Computed example of a mutant assay.
Amino acid sequence: MKMCIACGMPMTAIGDYPLHDISKNYCKHCAHKDGTMKTFEEKWQELTLHYVNHHNIDYAIAKETACTILKKLPAWKRKW
């Protein structure tokens, strides 16, 4: 089973891939509508807002938490 390099999501079905392209190593949630991968900053903002909106976490703490999680993933390791 493939895991998304940008968010860690398991990709178990063709619908999990951007544009149903199983050659991609990132998931549909980490892709733009044209199938290209989102940037670190885009994913960081999305994950931060997810924590704020769905887990009732303060924005500053959510931003720090999101960064901690993302920087451990293969797509972003070279950024650090």
Rank of each mutant, 00 (worst) to 15 (best):
Gly15Arg: 00
Pro74Ala: 15
Lys63Phe: 05
Ala31Gln: 03
His50Met: 13
Arg78Leu: 11
Ile69Tyr: 12
Ala60Gly: 00
Lys63Asn: 14
Lys79His: 02
Gly15Ile: 01
Ser23Ala: 13
Lys72Leu: 10
Phe40Pro: 02
Asp16His: 15
Ile61Glu: 15
Glu42Val: 08
Asp58Tyr: 06
Asn53His: 13
Leu19Pro: 01
Thr36Val: 06
Lys33Phe: 00
Glu42Asp: 14
Leu19Cys: 04
Trp76Ser: 13
Cys7Arg: 03
Lys77Cys: 00
Asn25Phe: 05
Trp44Ala: 12
Ile14Gln: 13
His55Phe: 15
Leu73Ile: 03
Lys38Ile: 03
Gln45Lys: 12
Ile5Lys: 15
Thr39Lys: 06
Glu42Met: 09
Cys7Pro: 02
Ile57Ser: 04
Ala75Asn: 11
Lys2Phe: 02
Ile57Glu: 13
Met1Glu: 04
Lys24Tyr: 06
Cys27Arg: 14
Met3Pro: 00
Tyr17Gln: 02
Lys2Gly: 00
Cys30Ala: 03
Thr12Ala: 07
Thr12Asp: 05
Glu41Val: 04
Lys63Asp: 06
Lys38Gly: 01
Gly35Ala: 06
Leu19Asn: 14
His54Ala: 08
Tyr59Gln: 07
Cys4Gln: 07
Tyr17Arg: 09
Trp80Lys: 13
Lys77Tyr: 02
His54Arg: 09
Gly15Asn: 09
Arg78Ala: 14
Phe40Val: 00
Ile61Pro: 03
Cys4His: 04
Met37Cys: 10
Met3Gly: 00
Ile14Val: 11
Asp34Cys: 07
Ile61Cys: 07
Thr48Ile: 11
Lys2Gln: 08
Leu73Pro: 01
Asp16Gln: 08
Arg78His: 12
Cys30Thr: 10
Ala31Lys: 02
Ile14Thr: 10
Lys79Glu: 04
Arg78Ser: 12
Leu70Tyr: 01
Asn56Arg: 10
Thr68Ile: 03
Cys4Met: 09
Ile61Gly: 00
Lys77Ala: 13
Cys7Ala: 09
Arg78Asn: 12
Pro18Ile: 10
Lys2Trp: 00
Asn25Gly: 08
Pro10Gln: 10
Pro10Val: 12
Ala31Ser: 10
Leu73Asp: 05
Leu73Gln: 14
Lys77Met: 12
Leu49Met: 15
Asp58Arg: 09
Gly35Ile: 08
Tyr26Lys: 11
Thr68Ala: 11
Ala62Gly: 05
His55Trp: 14
Ala62Lys: 04
Gly35Tyr: 09
Tyr17Trp: 05
Thr68Asp: 15
Pro18Glu: 09
Ile61Leu: 10
Tyr26Cys: 13
Asp34Gln: 06
Gly15Lys: 08
Lys63Ile: 00
Ala62Thr: 03
Leu70Asn: 02
Tyr51Met: 14
Ala75Leu: 13
Lys79Tyr: 03
Ala13Ile: 04
Lys43Tyr: 00
Thr48His: 04
His50Arg: 11
Cys27Met: 07
Asp58Val: 13
Lys77His: 05
Cys27Leu: 08
Tyr26Ser: 10
Ile22Arg: 11
Met1Pro: 14
Cys4Asn: 06
Cys4Leu: 12
His50Tyr: 14
Leu19Val: 03
Thr12Asn: 03
Asp58Phe: 11
Lys24Ser: 09
Tyr59Asp: 10
Gly35Phe: 09
Met1Asn: 07
